[in-house]
Amino acid sequence: MTVQLYARDVGSGTPLVLLHAFPLSSAMWLAQREGLAARFRVVTPDLRGFGGSVLGDDDPSIDAMADDVARLCERIGVRRAVVGGLSLGGYVAMALCRRHPDLVLGLVLAGARAGVDVASVREDRLRQAGRLDGDGTSTVLVDEVLPALVGPTTFRQRALVYGRVRGLVQATPPRAAAWAQRAMAGRPEAFGALRDLRVPALVLVGDEDTLATEAEARVMADAIPNAELLVIPRAGHLCSVEQPDLFNQAVADFAAALARTGR
């Protein structure tokens, strides 16, 4: 089944396609749409099954999610874009680089890892997928995934941000979350795609991120021929939500430089 993604599409200029984290939706990019649309065309899709997008009946696959995004870009007339992804969105962005390299003008990776899951993480994903299917609720996500999504600074000092993230997690459709967990558990390593990347990249990581660490971000940046690494202070896994101004400034500077060089 061909899935047609729902996407929010605002602003004009160099296209910036931002792919959301698990287990959220494009609603997480509110501060980016508000902060970047004056300078860029900001496209924020809901990945299949999340937000306004249907799940379809394909087997779980990050590659299928990447193909969905490529079809969306073709449908809305985006021939090349700065592609950014956080967490799950980062895995999809790396798959786009491998499967649809001509689409990618520049790459932004945040809170992502290029390696495959270690056995314990993979087992947790599959166990949670089973719980999601069995319970039909997002309880396991709230209990087990939510606590690691934001850093301790956000948990202590940004109650509104934490509450918003919790609400987004609670709203996640269980079937979509189970499908995505299985897709992530089965994803291949992405170091080959990163080493072959022929466009500039920006790697971002929150200094309080325990899911995708600063050390892992450095390994990714080192694998990319032309990459810059930026550590965002007082942020955990969802650095774009926890420190939106710092995230937006970094992405705007990166995308504007690409636009100036005409790459």
Rank of each mutant, 00 (worst) to 15 (best):
T139C: 08
D207C: 09
D133K: 15
E144L: 11
L18Q: 04
L204C: 04
A176V: 08
G52M: 09
L160C: 13
C73I: 05
D207V: 10
A257K: 14
V161N: 07
A129R: 08
G89Y: 05
V251I: 11
M1W: 08
R71A: 15
D207R: 10
F40Y: 01
G49W: 14
A21T: 14
L149V: 07
A255P: 01
L204Q: 03
S61A: 10
A259D: 15
A221K: 04
E228T: 15
G13V: 01
R158G: 11
G206P: 05
V83F: 07
D57P: 02
A193R: 06
S61L: 07
L238H: 09
G151A: 07
D67K: 03
Q157L: 14
D245Y: 09
L126S: 11
V140N: 10
R33I: 12
L105I: 01
A255I: 04
V142D: 10
A178C: 12
I62R: 10
L211Y: 01
P147S: 00
V108A: 04
L88C: 06
S25P: 02
G111D: 13
L160R: 14
A27Y: 13
E242F: 02
D57H: 11
I62C: 13
A119Y: 07
L24A: 13
V241E: 08
L96Q: 01
G11H: 07
L230F: 08
E123R: 15
R198W: 00
G262M: 05
L19I: 13
D143T: 04
A81I: 02
R75S: 14
A217I: 03
I224Y: 00
I76G: 12
L5G: 04
V116H: 05
A66L: 06
R33M: 11
G151V: 02
D135R: 07
V140R: 08
V169E: 04
V145W: 01
E189C: 04
L160K: 14
R125S: 05
R48T: 11
R182M: 11
A27P: 01
V10D: 15
L88R: 03
R182N: 06
S26P: 02
N248H: 10
R79P: 04
A7R: 09
A257L: 12
R75Q: 14
V121F: 12
R122Q: 13
R99P: 00
A201C: 02
R79S: 15
D196R: 14
A66H: 02
T261C: 12
L107F: 09
L211D: 10
P225Y: 01
A223M: 06
P244A: 09
E208W: 05
A112Y: 00
I76L: 09
A215N: 11
V140G: 11
D209N: 08
S120F: 08
S87K: 06
V10K: 05
A27I: 11
G111E: 06
G206Y: 06
L230T: 13
V116M: 15
A256D: 15
